[in-house]
Structure formats: structure tokens, C-alpha cells
Design a protein around this nucleic acid. Structure first.
Lengths: 342, 342
DNA sequence: CCTCCTCATGTTTACGTCAACATTGCCGCG
DNA sequence: CGCGGCAATGTTGACGTAAACATGAGGAGG
């Protein structure tokens, strides 16, 4: 940050003054045309429009933002785009924001540790956005929270309940219950669980809900296997599960781990779903074409994205806090990877 | 765009003037501290820093941008984030841009058709970015090009050679040759191809290179099957291929179609790789855990993202055009889905 | 002891836009 | 004919920042 020796020639474009001169009107009239005000004579408007086109005028957003005191832009803090859920949520956020006339600023968190404190508060919220949607796991937020500027509207997409920001997320608990009950309803004695990393709030929500569903039904609770969301970790866990003849049903905390699990079962010669049933979580686009096609819990990322933009914008514009967390229900998508035990 | 009745109270934060007053210095000195200039007395700097912290000062980027004539922000035009390649490239772009001190503005193209012309030139490049990276297929660019503001630095990530913008992309032709030769080298008489949609330049590059590799080697060129990148389209194509006993090797133009293909072959009872070998393209994260693990061509999206940011920034700062397209070589990742014909 | 230089700091101004207030000209109505 | 009113257009100023220039204090060197 210290070195910033970039002698960039600004290359400023034409401004309202240039258009005004060419059209023979005042800058204010140009402004009125640019903002579609009705109180401009049709002939004048045409003249201004023509002048704009001729000089290639584009309004300068910086000046606008300075004048208006708002940027019409929202920031999205993400850690890694690699996660399917983040990507799909971001896509929906971008669409919703664009339709509302807001720009989307991507604020990637490059590493978990924050740099020098002197820069810190200059960094993230550098007042170029009107609000922020946070897509990173809540535990990462803990470290970063210090530098979240006060007064900046924030919406968190996470199932953590610890923050007094508005929260929007898929209903993790309901989804996990759906998955577990589906397997029990098929007649399995109990359901094993391949969970996500302990650092993830969503993972622990799913695990707890799975556990509660089992105990509610009076089923034994097998030990939890722990993965890191990756197909590789699912594969490793799958090798263990394949070796245990007691296992007839597994609920994986996401589709990628389920995929690795499937591979391990294939390699071990355990048939799915004949020997072992598998349920995933997410419903990634490819899940329908896994072998066998994966029964999974569909998360409505698009809905979550849309709702989080709604929440943020209403907070930006009205200052309203929705302290009631918004939970988007999931649904079970039944495909070929589950069947009654034999 | 006509309706814009949002009475937002600006809620401006503290400015340099507030800090200056509190610290008992001039605004200019605050500016110097904020920009890490060296010619400020240590004691004064501390005082200013303390004042900044006290009032919660954050520099106003709009004012900065207005003053400096540049935004330190780049726009990324994407059509859909759903494509794996786009997402991974975007991730790399965001990381590279952030490290260079540039913000990333996501500019989603919501639909292929553009709206009213009167808004059009107000829309996209609304002068809030210093340059643009275009991640959409080139053919979509044709329709939108009209409204690309002149003088705005642009880098295109696409293998189309038609534009006089700097171009960065994975080397599609080399990758397709790698895939085809791999199968021929294993002893297959020829290689079938499941191509991407005709609208995609990358898809046609891969197809042409596959064809050329076959003819160079004197192999017969089977008819091309056409998909739309989705696993579903791969599945449909796979059903056809599975029914043809002549088929022993298939090169799918991406991993998702390869996945659908694998599923179709499983359902038809055709063993992979014993009966049919399959090669994909992309090397998505899950490819190693498909069943069987997929041999594929790895694209270096991260590299492409990094290089495109480099190209854009050097153009922004120096006005240099790299009219020489940049091709990033791919590499073949050999896994379990390919074997010699039996 | 005076001059000149350096370095910290202050003052002025412009960046592009748009709200608020001014001005002009025209129309209708008494 | 005169006056109020309205519609179109112009003028002024402020948003927050930082470059350019100005000022002033101290130090080195003759």
C-alpha cells in the first residue's frame, strides 16, 4: 500500500459542460435531459441528446455519487468463489441488484488474516458502496468485524444467529431433517452422516438437525464423519463407510462430498442404492447426472440472493432493520441414489 | 429507468474537514496523512490518525475518483456465473485486481437483447470503471458492441480473433489436440466428438482442432454431436453414442457434458473405459471423483484471469495495446476414463 | 548576521453534477 | 390592459478530495 507511484494520465471524457456548449444550453438543462426530467422542451431535449451523442457523453458516476451522497452500489464480501453456493447466490445478487439499479462491487477476502491496522479501516468499506452483503462463513467475520464501518448497512448470508445484522439463509435445519427423514421413511434403521468442517455454521446446523431427527425417531446416532466440503474428503470418508457392513444409508452434508462418497463405494464394489443409499445437499446442476443420479436437498440460492438484496436495499433506503432472520425452505429432490434397504 | 422515486436520506459520513477540525490542522494535512505522504511530522500524523479513528473517518471514494479522474475499479461483464470457467476466471480476476488496488465491478448481462437505445449508452460503461474485462461469448458481444464506449480500455477473454481488443484465453486448439492425440495414442481407430453449442467460439475452436488432428493422422472424421455445455445435453448425446458399437473413444468439449455422457454409458451397460474411453475439457474440481475419474484437459483459468487483469491495467495506465493475443497452454490430466481399446 | 534552502503546513481552486433559487417569456382571465 | 401563474431555462453553490501554489519556521553555510 505504501508504494503507489502510478502516473496515470486521467483521460477524462466529455462532461456536461461540453455537451452544454455544443447544444447551446446551460449545464443544468443537460442534467435535466440526462435525468429524464419532464420539464424540458422537446426540441431542446433532442438538441441536447444529439450533442451528447456527438461528443460521446457519459455521465460521471463519481460526480453523481459525490453530489447525491450515495453510490447506488452494493459490496459483496466473498472468501472464495469456488463454493457452488456462493457462486449461485452471487449470481442472484448481481441480477437482483442490477435490476434495482445498483452496481455490485466484489470484495474478495484474499486471506483470513488482515494486514496492517493503519490500512485496515481505510481498506474494505472505503465508502464506495451503500451497503454490504457478507457471504463468508461467520467465523471469518469474527476476525474481520473490527473493521466493518459503523453505520454501513450490512446483510449476512449465514445461519449464524450471533450477529445483529439482518440474516438471510437457506433453512439448513429443515433441509437436514428432510434428508434424514427421507432415508428413515424408506426403512433404514438409522442414517450415517458425513458432515462439513467444524468451522462452518451451516455444517453444524445440518449435523445437529440430523442428530435431532434421529433421536426424535428413537434411532441410534452413529459417529459423525467429518469432511471439508471437497469431493476428496468425501472419498476418504467413503472408504471407511464402505468397509462397514452396518452402513445402509448416508446423508452427506453437500453434493461434492456425496460425489466422492459414491466413487469410494463404486471402487469398493458396494452398490448404490442397493447396498447403500446416499443423500446429498445443495442440488448442484450436475447432481442429476452423477452415477447414480443423486437424491439431494435443493437449496434455493437464487431466492436467498434476491432476498438478501431486498433486505439490504430496504435498509439502505429506509434504515429498517429486519432483525427476524429470513429462512428459505429447501426441498428434497428424490433421484436414483436412495432406495429401501434390502 | 424512468421511475426513480427513491427519497434516500444520504447519511453522509464524516469528511476530511471534520477530522481536520478535531485534529486542529488543515484539510490538506489530513489528505496527506490519508495518502501516506512522507512530508508530515510524526506527531501531527499521530494526532490526525487519532482524530480519524475518533470520528470514524473513511475517505470518500467518489470525491477521490472525481478529483483524480480515475476510479481504480475495473468492470467485468459476464453473462451467467453458472459456467465453471467464468466463475474460476472471475475469482482470479478479483484476486489479481484487489492485489493491484483495483475494485471489481460485476456487470451482469441479464438477457441477450438490449433495451431502449436511449438508455443504452447511459447504462453499461456509466463511467464508473477505468476499464472492462469481457467474459461473455463473443457472439453476444456483437449485439452489445455498439454501446461499448470508445476510449474505454477493454480486454476480451475469448478465443475469437475478430476484435482489435487485447485478447487472453486458454489455448483451445492445443487442448483439443492434446485430448484427441491422447486417445489416438492409446490405439483407438478414431475419436468421436461431443461439441459445444455453435454460438460458442471456444466450442468451434475445439471442434476444428479435433478435426484437424484426426485428418493430420489420417483417421476418419465421425459426425459431430452437438450439446449445449450442460450435463443433460451430454446425457442425450451419450444415449446415441452408447447405441453405436463402432464408438470406442469420445472427446467431450467440457466436463459437464462428459459427466452426462458417462451416466448414459452406465445406463446402457457400456463399461468405461473398457468399452469406451472418454475425455473431458476443463478439469473441474469434481472431475477426479467422477465415476470413473475423468481424464480431461486442464484449463488454467486462474492464469487467464491474472493475465487479463495485467493486460487491462497496463492498458489503463500506459495506454498500451497488446494486439498479440495471449494463449495460455492447457495440459492433459490422465485419469481412469481412458484406456486402450480392447 | 544574512541568505538560501528545506520541510511542515496552510490556502485556493477545480474536478462533474444537480438541488435550490432566479429569471424570462408566454398565456389566460378579470 | 395588467396581473398572476406556469413552464422552460439559467445561475449559484456545495458535495469531499488533492494538486498547485503560498507561507513560515528553522538550519546550514558563507
Amino acid at each position: 500500500m505504501a508504494a503507489d507511484e502510478t502516473p496515470v494520465r486521467p483521460r477524462r471524457g466529455p462532461s456536461m459542460a461540453d455537451v452544454a456548449r455544443l447544444a447551446g444550453v446551460s449545464g443544468q438543462t443537460v442534467s435535466r435531459v440526462a435525468n429524464d426530467r419532464h420539464n424540458v422542451d422537446a426540441a431542446t431535449r433532442d438538441r441536447v441528446l444529439a450533442a451528447m451523442r456527438e461528443v460521446g457523453y457519459r455521465p460521471n458516476n463519481a460526480a453523481r455519487a459525490l453530489r447525491n451522497g450515495q453510490f447506488r452500489s452494493i459490496g459483496v464480501i466473498v472468501f472464495e468463489l469456488s463454493s457452488v453456493g456462493n457462486t449461485r447466490t452471487l449470481d442472484a445478487i448481481a441480477a437482483a441488484a442490477t435490476m434495482t439499479g445498483y452496481a455490485v462491487n466484489l470484495l474478495p477476502v484474499l486471506d483470513a488474516t488482515q494486514g496492517a491496522v493503519s490500512n485496515a479501516f481505510t481498506r474494505l468499506g472505503e465508502q464506495a458502496v451503500d451497503g454490504v452483503i457478507i457471504l463468508i462463513e461467520a467465523h471469518m467475520l469474527d476476525e474481520a468485524e473490527v473493521l466493518l464501518p459503523e453505520g454501513l448497512p450490512v446483510v449476512v448470508v449465514d445461519s449464524s444467529a450471533r450477529y445483529d445484522y439482518p440474516i438471510v439463509d437457506n433453512d439448513q435445519a429443515q433441509g437436514a431433517r428432510l434428508a434424514t427423514e427421507h432415508l428413515l421413511d424408506l426403512g433404514h434403521r438409522t442414517v450415517w452422516h458425513l458432515g462439513g468442517p467444524p468451522s462452518s455454521f451451516a455444517a453444524s446446523r445440518r449435523r445437529r438437525s440430523w442428530e435431532k431427527t434421529l433421536t426424535d425417531r428413537g434411532c441410534p446416532v452413529p459417529p459423525v464423519l467429518v469432511g471439508d466440503w471437497s469431493a476428496g474428503s468425501g472419498y476418504e470418508a467413503g472408504k471407511q463407510l464402505a468397509a462397514d457392513p452396518d452402513v445402509t444409508a448416508v446423508f452427506a452434508a453437500n453434493d461434492q462430498m456425496a460425489l466422492g462418497l459414491l466413487r469410494a463405494l463404486h471402487e469398493a464394489g458396494r452398490a448404490v442404492p442397493a447396498d447403500i443409499s446416499v443423500v446429498g445437499f445443495d442440488d448442484v446442476e450436475e447432481a442429476a447426472h452423477y452415477w447414480p443420479p443423486l437424491t439431494t436437498v435443493r437449496q434455493k440460492f437464487a431466492e436467498v440472493g434476491r432476498l438478501s438484496v431486498d433486505a439490504l436495499i430496504s435498509e439502505i433506503q429506509a434504515g429498517e432493520h429486519h432483525h427476524q432472520p429470513v429462512s428459505v425452505p429447501t426441498e428434497l429432490v428424490s433421484r436414483g441414489s436412495t432406495a429401501p434397504p434390502r
